[in-house]
């Protein structure tokens, strides 16, 4: 079974624990500026949205890389940047439709989410389960259950 990151923006409070967990996992420091997951705060509506790589199967970044620095982690399905191979050409950052692979000035390489080898630190740190790491085939299960529950209560009410 393969898992994937599942994001529920309605549960996000904007605490940035995920950003700190990400930067700590990868750089050993608490630094949202170095995080591979970003929280976007749309203050006019009050919405806060966690956003990161969704690990496309046919990943644009991977196909665009001229030196094959981006490869698939067979265990997790993550598209992983091999820093030793990456030449910092940034073509992948142009290819990615979602902007989730980014250049890092300090290292001269690109970085993106690699699912922490199958134990994503962001999901573990999230206090509200806005970010979870669940069965990739069934990321919609909770939402289905919620709506199914509503349907059930309505039909019961209708019968009464």
């Amino acid at each position: 079974m393969m898992n994937s990151l599942h994001i529920d923006p309605s549960k996000c409070t904007g605490c940035l624990q995920c950003e700190m967990a990400c930067s700590y996992e990868n750089y050993g420091v608490f630094a949202p500026a170095k995080s591979r997951i970003k929280i976007f705060d749309f203050h006019e509506t009050g919405r806060k949205v966690p956003y990161t790589c969704t690990q496309c199967d046919e990943a644009w970044c991977m196909h665009a890389c001229p030196v094959n620095a981006i490869t698939v982690d067979r265990a997790t399905g993550a598209k992983v940047v091999n820093e030793a191979t990456c030449v910092g050409c940034k073509v992948c950052t142009i290819a990615c439709p979602f902007g989730t692979v980014n250049y890092v000035q300090d290292t001269g390489k690109v970085q993106k989410c690699d699912l922490c080898g199958g134990k994503p630190a962001c999901a573990e740190a999230c206090p509200t389960s806005a970010i979870t790491y669940i069965n990739a085939d069934w990321t919609g299960l909770d939402r289905m259950r919620m709506w199914a529950g509503k349907l059930d209560s309505q039909s019961l009410a209708g019968n009464a």
Binding site: T13, C15, G46, T128
Partner: peptide, 19 residues
């Protein structure tokens, strides 16, 4: 009330966002 909101690093999230 539109939603609650956390400050940096806060796992309580008592802040109020209103319209």
């Amino acid at each position: 009330l539109v939603t609650n909101q956390a400050c940096f690093g806060c796992t309580i999230a008592c802040g109020r966002i209103s319209k």
